[in-house]
Simulated assay, not measured.
Amino acid sequence: MRSAREFAAETLHAWGVTCRHGEVLLCVSELAANALLHGVLPGRGYRLRMLRYEGTVRVEVHDSGGGRPRLGRGDRSAEGGRGLLLVAAVADRWAVVARVPPGKAVWCEFAVGAGGEGGEVRAGGPSDGL
């Protein structure tokens, strides 16, 4: 997750996005961790993709696993299960979409204000083999 956070921080800086860094980086960490723990088939990786358009930063994490992530209940005694709750709490919008070939993408968006050119940057996760 460290490389995903570093990539996201560098991308935000390159785009001149000066707000909501902590929230974006938190969501990148949570979505990358979920992909590694629950969505990556053996020998495969995940893909982190970031887009900027019309005052919005979008984070997408694609993996090759089945299933559909869902919000946990936030059980305080559990070791995990709060990642999507955090994403839902800090992102302006989020969703899960199926992708072909098999797998899914979990995305979230953040309003960051106007300025700068739109663009897209993609980075791969471990092995990047979807």
Rank of each mutant, 00 (worst) to 15 (best):
W107V: 02
A35M: 06
K104P: 04
C19S: 15
L84Y: 11
G113E: 08
T18Q: 15
V106I: 14
H38M: 01
A89K: 14
G16E: 02
P42D: 04
G103S: 06
G74K: 07
A123H: 03
E109V: 00
L84G: 02
H21M: 10
V17F: 13
R70H: 10
C27H: 04
G113C: 06
R20Q: 07
Y53K: 12
A33E: 13
S29Y: 13
V28M: 03
H62C: 11
V112S: 00
H38E: 00
L51D: 15
R82T: 06
R73G: 12
D92Y: 00
W94L: 07
R82K: 13
G74V: 06
P42Y: 01
A95R: 10
V59W: 03
S64N: 14
A114W: 11
V61N: 08
G16I: 03
G83T: 02
L86A: 09
R122T: 13
V17R: 09
F110H: 05
G39K: 08
L85T: 01
G55H: 09
A89W: 05
E54C: 08
A91F: 05
A78C: 02
V17S: 12
S77V: 03
G45C: 06
S77H: 03
V17A: 10
E79S: 07
V59S: 04
R58Y: 02
C27S: 09
C108G: 08
R58E: 15
Y53G: 13
V106G: 03
V96G: 03
E109Q: 09
A35R: 14
A33Q: 14
G65Y: 03
M50L: 15
C108H: 06
V90E: 02
R82H: 12
L41A: 14
C19A: 15
L31Y: 00
A33F: 14
P69K: 08
E79T: 01
G124E: 15
G103L: 06
V57M: 04
A123S: 10
G113H: 06
A114P: 13
V87W: 10
V106N: 04
G116F: 12
L71W: 05
K104W: 08
V112G: 01
G72Q: 09
A91I: 02
G116C: 05
H38T: 00
A88V: 05
G45Q: 08
W94K: 01
M50T: 08
M50V: 13
C19V: 15
V97M: 10
H62Y: 14
A91L: 04
E54I: 00
V90Y: 07
F110W: 03
M50I: 14
V17P: 14
R58K: 13
E109D: 08
C19G: 15
R76G: 04
L25K: 09
L85H: 07
L84E: 04
G116I: 02
V40H: 03
R122W: 02
P102A: 15
L26D: 04
L51Q: 15
A98H: 09
L37W: 12
R52L: 09
A89I: 00
C19K: 13
G72M: 09
L37H: 15
L37V: 04
H62P: 05
A111C: 07
G103Y: 00
G22D: 01
G39P: 09
G115W: 11
L51H: 07
H38N: 06
G39N: 07
E120L: 14
G119D: 07
D92C: 04
